[in-house]
Design a protein around this nucleic acid. Structure first.
Length: 153
DNA sequence: TAGGCCATCTGGTCCT
DNA sequence: AGGACCAGATGGCCTA
């Protein structure tokens, strides 16, 4: 858990009734101020839960997206970019499979091959360093020395 | 130490 | 009125 600048006034505390805001009315603040503070903290708690849900979704996405090596977790941006590339690669495979639909073995062969880095790179149709987006290019170096694997595959 | 990434708070806006 | 979503601000942690 990260040490937050506002941890001492956590919304979770207040929502669960542990906080002090639900206590006696202050002499000069009045109920309106107190209710405003209470709603703010409740909103904070909701926002925290929402972001946690979003992060859970990112974690699930990381597990189904290929990554080079396992030393470092993909950032959110990297995860989205990788998911995009992966979907495009798979889409391309399906499109090609349709063209060769008479040969049923073809799909199986291609599916096996796309799990290897060099072939995934081929299906992406380009290598990262030549991409127009320099930041994305730095994220996907397509280094032949790096191992490629589907984490939960 | 600078830069990247992240969690959290906050105020605004839209919707029910 | 209250909840969901969003973007900006802020501060902590980690790594090169």
């Amino acid at each position: 858990m990260k040490a937050s600048k506002c941890d001492s006034a956590s919304g979770a505390e207040l929502v669960s009734g542990v906080g002090s805001a639900s206590g006696s009315e202050s002499p000069c603040g009045g109920e309106r101020v107190e209710s405003g503070a209470r709603r703010r903290l409740a909103a904070n708690a909701r926002e925290r839960r929402r972001m946690q849900g979003l992060n859970t979704a990112f974690d699930r996405l990381r597990k189904v997206v290929p990554q080079w090596g396992q030393d470092k977790k993909l950032s959110k941006y990297e995860t989205l970019q990788m998911a995009l590339s992966y979907i495009m690669a798979l889409t391309r495979i399906l499109a090609e499979a349709e063209r060769y639909s008479t040969d049923r073995r073809w799909i199986h062969i291609q599916y096996e091959h796309v799990q290897e880095a060099e072939n995934f790179q081929t299906y992406l149709g380009q290598t990262a360093p030549e991409r127009k987006d320099s930041y994305t290019g730095s994220i996907f170096p397509f280094n032949r020395d790096n191992s490629f694997q589907i984490v939960n595959g």
